[in-house]
Amino acid sequence: MNTTEKVSLVAAINEVLQLAQAAAGAAGASIDDTAASNTKTYSSTKITGLLADLKNQILGGASAAYDTLQEIEAEIGNDKSALANLLTAVGNRLSFADAQSLTAAQQLQACTNLGIGDPTTDFVAAYNAAKA
């Protein structure tokens, strides 16, 4: 569904509502659940279903406690450090897509987590010692 309103979800939904109302009010307008146009509109049942589907897609199965932006804002607002903690946790993840500067302790922990051992191991020296 294309709208000219790209900044606000509410404004985009209102634009769709206005278009639907205009289509319904146009001379010769009729209801057609297979295709909307300038002379045809979807039934209220079809429109309600499409809006419910859009809501489900946006919310992605969020529980009723977090199914509005106001509820999400209130929850984040209750714990000012929650967002900062989340961003810190995300920032502390090892990235395979970006170059990272890690301390020696972070490198050791990352290598341990990956099961590849100590990153400071001198394998040439170990090889030469084993060969001798």
Rank of each mutant, 00 (worst) to 15 (best):
Q106D: 15
N128Q: 02
L59H: 06
S37R: 03
I47W: 07
A99R: 11
V16G: 09
C111F: 08
G60L: 03
L102V: 08
D33F: 15
A126E: 00
S44K: 01
Y66E: 00
S63P: 00
L54D: 12
Q100L: 07
S8Y: 06
S63Q: 02
Y66P: 00
N56P: 00
K40Y: 03
S63N: 00
P119W: 03
D118K: 07
I47A: 09
T39K: 02
A97D: 11
Q107E: 13
E71Q: 11
N2W: 07
T48M: 12
A20H: 11
T3G: 14
Q18M: 13
N14V: 13
S44C: 01
F96C: 06
S8W: 04
Y42T: 09
G115I: 14
G49C: 05
A11E: 08
G49V: 07
L17V: 10
T34D: 15
D67I: 02
N38P: 01
L51V: 11
A104S: 05
T120G: 07
C111R: 04
V90W: 07
L9G: 06
I47M: 09
L17H: 10
D79Y: 08
S37V: 01
E75G: 03
N113V: 08
L54W: 15
S37F: 05
L102A: 05
M1T: 13
N14A: 14
A65L: 00
T120S: 14
A126S: 00
L87I: 12
E5L: 12
S37W: 08
S30N: 13
G77T: 14
A99V: 12
N78C: 10
L50F: 07
I116T: 07
V10K: 14
G49Y: 07
S37P: 01
A110V: 06
S37T: 12
L87S: 04
I72N: 01
Y127A: 06
L19D: 14
A20L: 13
A82D: 09
L102I: 09
A52S: 13
N38L: 11
T4R: 10
A110Y: 09
N113C: 02
I13W: 03
A35C: 05
E73A: 14
T88R: 15
L86F: 12
L83P: 04
A24P: 02
K46S: 03
A36M: 15
L114H: 08
A26D: 11
S8H: 08
S81V: 13
R93D: 05
D98L: 15
D79M: 10
S30D: 15
A129L: 02
L108S: 04
T3R: 06
A125C: 02
A126Q: 00
L69R: 03
G77Y: 04
A36R: 10
A24W: 04
S44M: 02
A105L: 10
I76R: 08
A36P: 06
D98T: 15
N128E: 12
K55L: 10
D32R: 08
Q106W: 08
L9A: 09
N78I: 01
M1F: 10
Q100T: 09
A24C: 05
K131G: 07
A36Q: 11
N85Y: 03
L17R: 14
N92I: 05
L9V: 14
A12F: 04
I116E: 03
I116Y: 05
K131D: 03
V10N: 06
A65G: 00
A64Q: 00
A36T: 11
K40A: 13
M1R: 07
R93L: 15
D67F: 01
G28M: 10
L51E: 01
D67S: 02
D67M: 04
